[in-house]
Design a protein around this nucleic acid. Structure first.
Lengths: 155, 155
DNA sequence: AAAAAAATGTTACATTGTATCATTAGCAAT
DNA sequence: ATTGCTAATGATACAATGTAACATTTTTTT
């Protein structure tokens, strides 16, 4: 799908939260939507400066990312301190907690929904030792199909 | 178990890798063994300086942590950029890939072994979209029993 | 003792993240 | 339109984290 169409949808999503998808926010989100990989705040600041010719300080990028995350348009990868656009911006669903497969070689990220039963199994294992799972977001270190091929990983 | 006994065991583990548990390494590992929480390299540098009166620069701490991790005596929490002592230093087993439950409130960490079948289920879900799981270490954001009580989380 | 390897020290710097206050833009109500 | 309010962004300074590179010391091996 076209980036612009996704951004328009994101704008509606903002409105539904009584907020605006401003020009700057749109730029940051566009950078993430166009990227296969997760990007850091500084990556995005560079992106805006180099590709768009607009100055955007890291401080602002952090704030914008925090905002976009708060309404579910982007996700933060805690293992990498980087951000990705939500894969379901156009789905208009109740954005669920996602799981991420992160290729350790090329850095590409795939957002997936792992089955509820698996999450339940994990949750039960956690409860068994007296803890409570409060965040279902998993980040898994993987090889993507391409990199697995190049590295000769056995199927 | 006494910290010293654990450290002695760790020393043997080092020997079995043809390496030494030097005084500095012992200090760093002791800091982790005594801590309920995960500690950053800088935390440990502070610990050595304040509690032991020995100077240890962060650069050295990083190297020591990397070494201890390479022989399985400590684990690195990628979501927090912090380190914990392996919970099985004295078990003398083949150290397996662990999973970590991290209390988001007090920061305490519990190392557990989630059942093989769960890992297998996750692995299969990953394969289904063409990725390969290369690291089974899970880090789960939790509430520990104490903090759950204080926060009134329903059992 | 000499050479080699392992371990640590030291300095400098790159990267990442936050605190704080200032400024600007958008909008509602008088 | 102007005042006043809030959202949004700019700007500066700094804190925290991590790494590169080379020097020095200690230990082991020959």
């Amino acid at each position: 799908m076209k980036t612009e169409a996704i951004l328009d949808q994101a704008a509606l999503h903002c409105e539904s939260h009584g907020r605006k998808l401003t020009a700057k926010r749109r730029q940051v989100l566009a950078g993430l939507v166009k990227s296969e990989k997760a990007l850091s705040a500084y990556d995005l600041a560079d992106y805006c400066r180099e590709k768009l010719g607009t100055s955007l300080l890291p401080m602002s990028v952090y704030r914008i990312l925090e905002f976009l995350q708060s309404i579910g348009l982007v996700h933060r990868l805690n293992t990498a301190n980087k951000y990705v656009a939500c894969a379901h911006i156009t789905c208009d669903h109740a954005h669920e907690i996602p799981q991420f497969l992160i290729c350790k070689v090329c850095g590409s990220v795939r957002e997936v929904g792992i089955t509820k039963s698996l999450i339940k199994g994990i949750s039960q294992a956690v409860e068994k030792v007296g803890f409570h799972l409060v965040n279902n977001q998993l980040e898994l270190e993987c090889l993507c199909a391409d990199c697995a091929l190049q590295q000769g990983v056995a199927q």
